[in-house]
Every structure is written in structure tokens, then in C-alpha cells.
Nucleic acid binder design. Structure first.
Lengths: 236, 236
DNA sequence: ACCTGAACACCGTTCAAGT
DNA sequence: ACCTGAACACCGTTCAAGT
């Protein structure tokens, strides 16, 4: 409520698409997809709901724009540091997405939605390109570039989504050792499962208790890299 | 509008949770998540919206129940055929989920939502167990069971989601050769991308045009199996 | 115990009207 | 060209009332 700033520096920005996306991300971060509302958006932007439709076609497009902005940001931040090796490059891209999803958990579902709505939207393509360049530099035979890059892409998105959720669950339980507590509880739940129905899950309950999300995530990446660079087995 | 059947055989089933889930799946198949509405559900079940809440806590639980039912079905169908080898077993589970997502595309997003909401829901656990048993039988060192199974799980869900979407996109364009046409169009789009921004994507445009979704999906599974069974490289 | 259906609060989207 | 805000159609959910 400043009485009047010199030139209304940023109080009365004229409502741009960028500004709308920016506030949309804030709402999504605060309360997930349910938190993004044209009315809430309008209130924060000191305008009416209808005004937003001048800059954005509908909610779906707004969600896409928010996703695109964050993914582009995550990838650029990683591309900037020219990696020492292709392996490092892949790790960097993977961790960039991992971190982005950890900060903005709604991204995981949003990416899955875009992927399944129609594959190869701009966002997916951006990630595909970013991962693929490193795959190409890795010495993988050219005729398996597409397969290898796709496999990596799917793993990264899926695993980042779950591990990020893991991290959030742990955090939600409070500060300090709650993360360990969370894993311990989950592990005990696994050990209490029916031995006939869940023998395997019971067997790895301890591994799951002791795992670190980030390490686990990178171990998966390493596993796929191994598969890509090893000679494929006899029959596929 | 039959005037009166002998004993109201199945006309007037007393509205059970199973029946509700069954109709929910029909609605989801017909029009995606937007198609599932308590009012539409009530109409199809010849009752009021409130009645449904006697059997189901809310929409989210209903969605979970529908997902659980279909995943359980897909996994049981595969478990029944005792596989010749662990590799075959993994392929069978993977394809079972692939097919389920192809028939019910909304499953992909729903699984991602469950995964990211909190990991290790019943559905995830079921898949994890199913995949993990075969991983255990594969001769993978026990201390990497958790990592290996997680990697496979994430790949399967992510890739099945995208490839199934691919299949649906192709189908939506009409019968016959439209699938090839769809891939051809997409491939041309890739070739027309900016050479500076998308060198890799342009380079694999032809591979993407010629790929078969199902083969591609299985090639990814094979790649991860290779990575699991090969000795890991020096530094991970 | 189970069902009915009106009512509540809230949503995305539209659009005539303003500047 | 861009914004306003009431209005429309629709949604999930609740709940007093019925059987």
C-alpha cells in the first residue's frame, strides 16, 4: 500500500504472460495442481479472471507453459557447465531434472501427463535432445541412439518423480531425523507384508531402509549406462 | 426398459463397490479422467450422487481403486503363465502393463500420480514385487536387487505410458496406414527442427520414423537387463 | 444399513461492456 | 489492444430426510 512510487516500478506491471506463469508456479508450489485457480491467480495479480485469458488460452496451456519454463531452466543450468565426460553430462542433466522435481513436485505428474497426452511435446523434446547429445558422445552405436536415449529419458522422469516424492514425504514429517524415521517405518511395513504374497519385497526391506534417494537415483542411471555401452546379449 | 424380468437378475444389483469401480473404468475409458463424474456415475447406476459416497470415500479413492483393479488384473494374467526364464517373466510383466495402459490410457497418468503422491502405494508395491521376483531369479547380486528392480519399474511405467500414447495417437488418426503416416509426420517435424538447437533429435528422426512401439519398449527392457547382469563399470 | 436428491461452495470459461 | 466482472454450466461433496 505504498502511497505512490516514483514511476510504479513494478507495482503495476501490465500483466504479461511471463508474469502469469511466474505466479502460477508459486501457486502450484504452494498447494499442488489444486492450488492453481484462475480466481486465485487473478487475485494475486490484482485483476479479474477474464484478463488472464487474454494472455493464455486455458488452464492446460498455462500448466504446459509453467512446466516448460522450469524444465528449460533446469536444463540450461546444466548445459552451461560443459561436462568433463558424456557420463558426467548425463548425470548432470538427470540431476538437474531430479532437483527441479524435488523443488516443484507437481512437475512429475505434469510431465507424465504431457508424455501420455501426446509424446514429443516441446518439453519432452528438450529433455530428449539434452540427454541424446551425451548419449551420442558416449560411443553408443548410432543405430541404438533412439532406443538408448528413450530408455534413459523414461527412467529419469519416472525415478525422479518417485524419489522426489520420497524426499517430500520425509520432509513433511518434520525436521531432523524424520527422514530416517520415515524410511524405517516404511521398511517395517514391508517386513510385515504377507510372506506368500510379498516374498521379494520383504527380502529387500532392509535395502530400502538404508538407501539414499539421490544415490539410488544415480545408481539407476549408472545401470542403464552400463547396459547401453555393454554389448547386448544374444537374443535381446 | 424390460417390463419386468423374472427375478431382476442383474438389473437391480444393489450397488456395490465393485460395480461402481466397474462403471468408473467404463467412463474413464470413454473420456479420460474428465469423463469420470459422480453425476455421470450416478446416472449409469440409476441412483443419486450421494449414494456412491456410501461405498467410496471420494473421487481420489475411486480412481485408486480403478487403477488397482486393472493393474492387479494385468499382473495376474501374466503370473499365471509360469515363464520359461526370469527374462521371459520380466518381459511378460512389462508387456502386461504395456497392454493395460494401451487399453486404458488414463492409467499412465494415474500411476504417475500415485507414484508421486506417496511412493509404495499398494499398486506400486504389487508391480515392484512382480518385477522383483524375476530380478531375484535372474542371478543379479542380492545387494543390487532394490536398485535394479526400481530402475526396471520406472522404465516400464514411463515407457509404457509414452508408447501407449503413441499407439493411441496413431489410432485416433483413423484406420489403416495412419500409424505409419503419423510417424512419418512426426519424423518430418524432427527433421525441420533448428540444427543448432536440435542436432541430436534431427539425427535420429529416421530411427524414430521406423521404430515399432512394442519392439522399442522391449528393447529398452533388454537394455536394462543387460545393465543389471553385466559387471558395473569402474566408478559407477 | 443403505439410498435420495437438494443444496453448498467452488471451478473453468465466456462475453458484453468498458478504457 | 487489453481489462473487468457478472454470468453460465458444471463439479465434488455434504446431509437431512427417507426406506
Amino acid at each position: 500500500m505504498a502511497t505512490r512510487t516514483r514511476r510504479a516500478e513494478r507495482r503495476e506491471e501490465p500483466l504479461s504472460r511471463e508474469r502469469i506463469v511466474e505466479v502460477a508456479v508459486e501457486l502450484l508450489d504452494a498447494a499442488g495442481e489444486g492450488g492453481l485457480t484462475f480466481r486465485a491467480l487473478a487475485e494475486r495479480l490484482a485483476t479479474g479472471p477474464g484478463a488472464i485469458y487474454w494472455h493464455v488460452a486455458n488452464k492446460s496451456e498455462l500448466l504446459d507453459a509453467a512446466t516448460d519454463a522450469l524444465v528449460a531452466g533446469a536444463l540450461e543450468a546444466r548445459d552451461a557447465r560443459s561436462p568433463k565426460s558424456p557420463r558426467d553430462g548425463i548425470r548432470a542433466v538427470a540431476l538437474g531434472l531430479y532437483d527441479a522435481i524435488e523443488v516443484h513436485p507437481w512437475l512429475a505428474v505434469q510431465l507424465a501427463t504431457q508424455l501420455s497426452r501426446s509424446p514429443w511435446q516441446p518439453v519432452t523434446l528438450r529433455i530428449f535432445e539434452s540427454v541424446g547429445r551425451q548419449v551420442g558422445a558416449l560411443g553408443v552405436p548410432e543405430n541404438s541412439w533412439f532406443t538408448a536415449t528413450s530408455a534413459l529419458l523414461h527412467y529419469i522422469l519416472g525415478a525422479a518423480g518417485q524419489n522426489a516424492a520420497n524426499a517430500v514425504s520425509g520432509r513433511a514429517l518434520g525436521p531432523g531425523s524424520s527422514r530416517a524415521q520415515f524410511l524405517d517405518d516404511a521398511s517395517k511395513t514391508w517386513e510385515a507384508l504377507d510372506p506368500d504374497d510379498y516374498p521379494f519385497t520383504r527380502a529387500v526391506a532392509a535395502q530400502m531402509r538404508d538407501h539414499d534417494d539421490r544415490e539410488q537415483f544415480l545408481a539407476g542411471v549408472a545401470l542403464i549406462l552400463t547396459g547401453m555401452t555393454a554389448a547386448p546379449p544374444s537374443s535381446a
